[in-house]
Design a protein around this nucleic acid. Structure first.
Lengths: 200, 200
DNA sequence: CCTTGACTTGACCAATCGGTCAACTATACT
DNA sequence: AGTATAGTTGACCGATTGGTCAAGTCAAGG
């Protein structure tokens, strides 16, 4: 049996898991403390507010993503097409695992938070906007490399990268709404075929 | 000056506007009552719970959509391509108006609610899933008519309709997260170009 | 040994949450 | 006129919300 992580980490991970499984507003500080086995006083020793905790949760989630799915998918050893394919595979596998464990497709944690809080918490919206920019940039770089290998006439690379990202998020939202991971299998791979052309 | 609508309607519309502008959890029954100029006792005379009210709000929103954007876009007098174009135009115009009035892109009211509540309120998730199905069906019919006019080789019509809908939702989510209606101008029209092909 | 500072604890706060209820008013039908 | 019914009102409920705080524990450093 492994020793428990330190208090800060327990709070962070409890909050991350609870919020991802439901929503920001639905998860109280009390519930986070219970799951983390921490008293509320300790919570506020490490985090000045629930909002600050959430900002840290977003960072933590992105770091986790970078060290797993993103690292594996956007590996230099893969061709652009293989990178996209790997990204879809890993995303589908993860969502299927979560669905099997929780009974729900949870979708994209950033998209979830952004949808809920974009209009009422500007700090969180900005943080996720920046993060979306980085993910979009990953798509763009992959796309640039793909085009370098095989020229595509009149392709608007920036718009296509943004469109691919939007499509990806939309498919996650649809799978969550239908609570059906099969949606991902059917739709996600088409992300790589999406093209937006320059107006002439 | 127009006379006020009846109590039921005032509650429904107040709730619709408040929830759309922020989120389900963020809007309390009290706030709804204040905006509707109704006492809490009256609220519970018309609606047994906040959840039931929300189900009615979803219906109300869909009816409104059917009588405005959907009716105008999916008119029998328009060609399939024109229908898509009209849908994008009207959607962009509405989101731009909302952005101008509130300072925020609010996105899709159904997508917003689904994202927030899909995992914690099965009744609401089901209602939105059904509604998504109807919207997706509109896309499918339009697509079928387009293909009848101009055959597209190996097109998976069902998957493409579902993909178009997902893309549409994803673009709305992205515009909301970036709080920038220009995202819609750049990305929404590409919905009509999206294609998912049969595997051979 | 004693102090310092990080951490923990549990009691506590005002405010708000969704929801209830008995009493009251106004309208409509017999 | 009398009664039934729909709608309104404001006080009230227990539970929970995010957040505070004084008092305490504990290990490290002088």
């Amino acid at each position: 049996m492994s020793t428990q992580p330190d208090t800060y980490t327990r709070i962070l991970e409890a909050a991350r898991d609870l919020i991802y499984a439901s929503s920001y507003a639905d998860v109280g500080v009390q519930a986070i403390c219970e799951k983390a086995e921490v008293k509320k006083g300790s919570f506020y020793h490490f985090f000045p507010s629930k909002q600050e905790l959430t900002l840290a949760v977003i960072d933590n989630y992105y770091e986790g993503l970078k060290d797993s799915i993103l690292r594996e998918a956007f590996s230099a050893s893969l061709s652009p097409a293989e990178r996209f394919q790997k990204l879809f595979e890993l995303t589908i596998a993860r969502q299927e695992l979560i669905h099997q464990q929780t009974g729900h497709v949870l979708g994209c944690p950033f998209g979830n938070l952004a949808t809920e809080l974009a209009t009422s918490d500007e700090a969180i919206r900005c943080k996720i906007e920046g993060l979306f920019g980085r993910l979009q940039e990953l798509m763009r770089e992959t796309l640039v490399e793909a085009v370098a290998r095989e020229k595509i006439e009149d392709l608007d690379i920036d718009a296509t990268a943004e469109g691919m990202f939007a499509y990806f998020e939309g498919v996650m939202l649809l799978a969550k709404t239908k609570n059906d991971p099969a949606v991902l299998r059917k739709l996600l791979p088409a992300t790589a075929q999406l093209r937006i052309h320059n107006i002439n």
